[in-house]
Design a protein around this nucleic acid. Sequence first.
RNA 1: GGCCCGUUCGUCUAGGGGUCAGGACGCCAGGUUUUCAUCCUGGAAACAGGGGUUCGAUUCUCCUACGGGCUACCA
Length: 512
Amino acid sequence: MSDRPVRVRFAPSPTGPLHIGGVRTALYNYLFAKKNNGTFLLRVEDTDQNRFVPGAEEYIIEALRWCGIEIEEGVSVGGPHAPYRQSERKAMYRQYAEKLVELGHAYYAFDTTEELEAMRKRLEAAKVAAPQYNAVTRGTMKNSLTLSEDEVKKLMDSGANYVIRMKIPRNEEIRFHDVIRGWVVVHTQSLDDKVLFKSDGMPTYHLANVVDDYLMQITHVIRGEEWLPSAPLHVLLYRSMGWESVMPEFAHLPLLLRPDGNGKLSKRDGDRLGFPVFPLDWKDPATGEQSSGYRERGYFPDAVVNLLAFLGWNPGTTQELFSMEELIGAFSLDRVSKHGAKFDPDKAKWYNQQYLRKRTDTELAMQFLPIVKEKGVHVSLATENYVERVCALIKEKAHFVNEFWDLSSFFFFAPEKYDEGVIAKKWNADAAAFFAKVKDVFANTTDFSAHNVEAVFKKTAEENNIAPGSVMQLFRVVITGITVGPILFNAIELLGKDEVVKRLEKALAILK
RNA sequence: GGCCCGUUCGUCUAGGGGUCAGGACGCCAGGUUUUCAUCCUGGAAACAGGGGUUCGAUUCUCCUACGGGCUACCA
């Protein structure tokens, strides 16, 4: 494996929106590449034309871009091994499949779907543990091992459908090293003669993946654990092709599991449990089905990257917040865990909260401003600064920017109604008299800083024999209409004298 | 069913032959904020079970159980 420059690929198939587990696979590939001064490439594995979904490829590229995973070579950017879309590489795969046939490692098979089905039924009836097309059954099937050369030629000339199957050796132990799992041993008796080349002229994943990894000089195959069972086949392919000396290292990543119950994280879990399973929103072009994404739910991309990185990997320290740069510096495959990780929606929220706090008030205001405008607030240059100050006051209370409006609408509109519970309990003639005085005092206060307003308010209360604490909640409701919010005097300072006096007048008029 | 991979607090995980088995999320309690959130302090909470190896296993090994993946002319 040695000193070849590190090259890794993310190789999704465009069959729908990229799953968040796929994003993590891409991320680990990217981190590994960057950590080792290598190259990260994107290859699109669209060898199954039946499953092609329009828009899926664009979705994948946009999702990676949003996460800050830079495609350095491959689909959308090009490179020395173009094309990177397997459908566009179609013509080159057949020769490799045929080479394997010539070498005696593969063969033509003419069995129809019905014949294959009949074979499986027969084996099941005979109580065979694993009915499959393999060393023991291929002798009973219609293929170039059982048919004469003439018959094969005749069939092919007549345009009969055929596939090329791998001729798995009968009795061999396949050993390969996995960076994450150590040595994995599989006996060829449990492998079947996988189709390498389909009757539609396209390679299967197995062939295309090995050929392309070889041609693109991939040094490390980092992919999900679901590929572990077929890794021995891939090893066999490298051997049969004579490419074993440049066979990539394998690293099979643990899967992302659903938060409740069992099984791998799937599309439905998200909407059922209220968290996204996809990076971006997606609408299925065929069914119209909607799936929500992290981006539209209000997650920051750096938060998503951080939380994804920690699902299956950890730095071995207590540091939990990592920028992409820091992840690159700290990442290594031998700190990737072996077991699946259940996705934890609560922790995901926590991560976003941490990143929300890291944002400057200006950055937050930039995101909040469109929402403020949408709510009908007139925005001038002056209020951009105002929005920024609002963000400063409320950001400690939120996990997401999209919670800002509910926390701050009173900064933009005077309350139309007042918390009924508090009013019913605390509003009376004495209270009205007191707040009338407060209004007058405020009207004559020039220093409207939070500190001074607080002092003035307390002094007024004391002069009227009122414990300031006993009217604070009522005061908050009178000014904001609600019972929760930032430190009240900070809010009052920002609201400004004129607005506060106006609100007192309004409350006095309405609550009378 | 068969094959492969796995198993430390509810969750993500650190650790590794002798540790008070550590951290984080969440949860609970107290304090601060005259509310809420934040913040601070504290707390409950784990080595799946059984054999071996060993002076000593959570750590090494085997078996069982459980979980997961794969088992298509899908990737």
